[in-house]
Design a protein around this nucleic acid. Structure first.
Lengths: 341, 341
DNA sequence: CTGAAAGCGCTTACAG
DNA sequence: CTGAAAGCGCTTACAG
């Protein structure tokens, strides 16, 4: 009978209380992990919950308490795998804190809200009464408007909501690591493929700064203003046309590097013998055998952990750091080598 | 003052009713899109909602009504981009029907539920009181247990919950299209790279059937039992070692094809001059310039639309088809050509 | 710890 | 359409 489809009423705290032989207030205390409950009573209640296959109603919890115990996360697009490690890190900390995560993507919005992108996502989160928001994309105006709950921005963005804390990888340091790696290999003609957004801007600035510091001339190209595969292809083609003596390409991210690889091949060059190629992000594609891309790991899992901790701290009313930087790390694979010739 | 941070109380239907000069029952009727409301009163209520920046509380709606108006979707892993088009299709139909979508991934589960994978996801959906569930992954035992709400399975799976409706791409037809395309180009030595799961099994069976029909010998290899890039690489290496006269490789999906490309290059062959390569899924990677992969589009957006319609119909109490197949479509790019020599 | 009570913001029926 | 009422399943505060 245990497997009878539960067309029957779901168990409530009344049922649990009756079964455990305690008051319903006590069950509520157990649900909230109150320290005021004795171990034996807690066990009795927990046993009853298991026996009745009890699961608290999120709707009732949210409506009765002021908190919903869920945190919203906005990402740009499920296709940009940037966010996967971040999510893992967030869950690692949020889960044990009793907080659930709900993710929405800007790209999936209904066309009706095109006038105010991000509006539908925010409305959904307000309707769900999220306790806090993690913004893991370039904020739209709707995301910049204060909504009455704490906001933590993950990653370097070109704009930030007032009062939001920012947790991000140190993109400047990461780009410096990348460029220094190429310099150490002996490269002197290093070009950069850049795109749009806050992180790209920081990577570009660091690239230019390091080259200037060592007395070399930066050479930058972009594609169509974004950071996708076609942008990388187009930007690399421009570099190869304008400066055929380039020996190393530093792409703004791994996806752009994938596009760049096609352009390099078309120019009759091999990676890394004829051209070194650096990515950024250490996304899943970087590990594919066709690329084996040397790249910079942003440590987004750690960014996620710290962003989650910041959320937890703010919900507890503690003061939090307005800005936290996580150190990136060089990931050596097979796409970089000393310059040709 | 309109932009004053809403530390103030959120508007409720009482506020809206007062502002619009109607009863709160009427506001409730408007929220439910009832046809009993006159156009002018509806407009008055809607105007009041905009003025007060009113957004209904999902918690209250869910608790008071029997329905939460949200549909759960379980996917395998955010890294497999399979689900992106599916999600778009689901939203296209669910949105206008007033239903919201919430997605959870099996891979993101806390380690504590490893004993019963999918359990945490299901518990979350039960707690949220989803109205229905869309299973877009290979179901775990937890996902196969009836929970009291309708289930629609998207895609071909090796197991299906009792009473679930299944909407999927016609993987047999898709594999047949792929193999016939290679045959039409003149290939006679066509190998197949296969992986795990229900869709893979159907694609494999169709491949073998078509080859037998035309009197050719199938040649199949797999990697490590999954369908990822390393599996494709490993499977392709086996084929190239065991049967160097192979002229075309039909990969179980695009990600495996990406791995296969690396093996083909290592063997000193070019695509498509020395080896034709077919994928399956038409995932974002297939369009990358480095691959330009001829593949089969599963029309997952259409699968999503139909799955959503099936959910809507079941919620309305209508009878639904237990099994629906969507026709796939050949996508020609540059990775296939007549056989070498 | 218990027990009775009020309330969160809605939906649902029901009399007018 | 209105208006008063009960209820969804919890949390919160409070007297005992």
């Amino acid at each position: 009978m245990a497997d009878r489809p539960r067309a029957t009423r779901r168990a409530t705290i009344y049922d649990v209380a009756a079964r455990a032989g305690v008051s319903k207030s006590l069950v509520s205390l157990v649900l909230q992990n109150s320290p005021k409950v004795s171990a034996e009573r807690r066990q009795a209640v927990e046993a009853a919950m298991v026996e009745l296959d009890y699961r608290p109603s999120r709707a009732a919890t949210a409506l009765a308490g002021s908190r919903s115990r869920t945190i919203g996360v906005v990402i740009d697009d499920f296709r940009n795998l940037w966010f996967v490690d971040l999510l893992d890190g967030l869950r690692e900390v949020l889960g044990p804190a009793g907080l659930t995560l709900t993710v929405a993507d800007l790209a999936g919005e209904s066309a009706s809200s095109e006038a105010d992108p991000g509006r539908a996502v925010i409305d959904g989160f307000v309707a769900s009464a999220v306790d806090a928001l993690v913004v893991a994309c370039e904020p739209t105006p709707a995301l910049l408007r204060p909504q009455g709950f704490p906001v933590v921005v993950a990653g370097n963005r070109s704009a930030t909501p007032p009062d939001a804390a920012v947790v991000s990888s140190d993109d400047s340091a990461g780009a410096e690591i990348a460029v220094r790696h190429l310099l150490d290999l002996g490269h002197r003609r290093i070009a950069h493929l850049t795109g749009g957004g806050g992180a790209s801007a920081l990577r570009l600035a660091a690239y230019e700064r390091v080259l200037h510091d060592v007395g070399l001339t930066p050479h930058v190209a972009s594609g169509f203003g974004r950071t996708n595969e076609p942008d990388g292809y187009e930007a690399a083609r421009r570099i190869l046309r304008e400066a055929p003596d380039t020996t190393a390409l530093f792409a703004g991210n791994d996806t752009m590097a994938l596009g760049a690889l096609a352009a390099i091949r078309e120019a009759g060059l091999d990676v890394p013998a004829g051209m070194s190629l650096m990515g950024f992000d250490n996304s899943p594609i970087a590990d594919a055998r066709i690329l084996r891309l040397t790249t910079v790991d942003s440590e987004n899992r750690e960014v996620g952990r710290r962003a989650a901790q910041t959320v937890v701290d703010r919900l507890a009313g503690a003061r939090v750091h307005r800005r936290q930087l996580v150190s990136p790390r060089l990931v050596l694979r097979d796409s970089t080598a000393p310059p040709r010739g």
